[in-house]
Design a protein around this nucleic acid. Sequence first.
RNA 1: GGAGAGUUGGCUGAGUGGUCGAAAGCGCCUCCCUGCUAAGGAGGUAACUGGGCAACUGGUUCGAGGGUUCGAAUCCCUCACUCUCCGCCA
Length: 415
Amino acid sequence: MIDIKKLRDNLEDIKIALKKRGYDLDESSFKSLDDSRKELQVDVEGLQAERKQLSSEFGKLKASGKDTSDLKKIIDEKNSDLENKDADLQEVLSKLNSLLLDMPNIPDDSVPIGSSEEDNKVISQHGEIKTNNTQDHLEITKKIDTELAAKLSGSRFAVLKGDLAKLQRSLISFMIDCAINNGYKEYYVPFMANEESLTGTGQLPKFEEDLFKASDKLYLIPTAEVPLTNLFRDEFLNEKDLPVKVTSHTPCFRSEAGSYGKDTRGLIRQHQFEKIELVQITHPSDSMNCLETLLNNACEILNKLELPYQIVELCSGDLGFSSAKTFDIEVWMPSQNKYREISSCSNFTDFQARRSNIKYKSKDGNNFVHTINGSGLAVGRCLIALIENNFDGKDTINIPSCLEQYFGSNEIKVN
RNA sequence: GGAGAGUUGGCUGAGUGGUCGAAAGCGCCUCCCUGCUAAGGAGGUAACUGGGCAACUGGUUCGAGGGUUCGAAUCCCUCACUCUCCGCCA
């Protein structure tokens, strides 16, 4: 959520900044709403103050045994006036609030301008593309079974068999251990979240169709970002404890509404996938540095897995709703002959902190923290990358040495 | 599933219709005292938000929402959550 005071004072600048990411701010409707808010609020609070005083007089009058009927008449009038004005005020406030909840974050000044994915900027490339394999992961191994999953559940699910299931479990442990070594505290969290939590991180109210709703009040989490960030909702943190670094492995559930026909084959885009999430709660002055650190923490995993990847800075038009600045990490997918996203590391500045009411105390008073997060990493896509990059062309997938202590072998037979 | 108790400031916890944003204690901050430390003494210490250039000055908030009342932390209703006991259960 954007700071409404900031919005009032810098309406033109913010309109221009939001334009960069394709959001058209209706400034006149904001201004007229805010103006009537001001007028109504002053009225309402004035009437409340009057009522307070009159009620106290009423009490005294009554205590002294005098007649209160005249005063009651006055109070009744004021009260009905107050009731009407307050109803108007509540309506205006609720409109203003919806407007703010639907506004995306302001892109950081450093974000490259652009309208779509096409305009994203490749920052760097790492590792060496070693294979000329063109088979995709489903062709390489029958240990991923999407037909069986279709019987159980439907499309966009997968069953992993035997040592491939174990490889996934090994990847999860490896990634979590990397995070812990980098100073993140591990959490086990609920995989369902309520409306407040999802509003706090920005999925609701605007993107409900992307979520699976489990009951009246609960949604399946689309990422561990939701529970991890909301651990701190409505909390004050000590300035000296920042940045707070937390991690969790969870399954993630996404409806993938609107992506019909896209990435329909294999593990690349599933309704359910495993992910390790890295979250940092930071001091506002430090958040961009922390984003660099978090990005490095995620890259370290690909370095150790010896998978080729590139770092991409998202342009203004491709930024997620809540993000002010995002770097994607894209891993090489031989069968697609291109790099595909395996992690997205973002600085949300105070956007989520405002929605979630996460603050720190300092000598200068209370202030909103900044939140940072990124995948470290998406496990399903990591599996694809390992299978396709490390297939020997015959019958074996080689397992990188960093996984051996978890997996217990340096290879998987494809059948 | 059954029965009961509870939810108040950073924490513990008092408070059954106006003088309560709220006693007391703890914690924290400032100062005093004391070779240092500890102990002791004095004062301060909720959040959110409006108006105003400012000095300053309003409003809201005692789990959430509604109701009663001139007036609600306090009375009534609904809901959420926490805890205890019983039953069941991985």
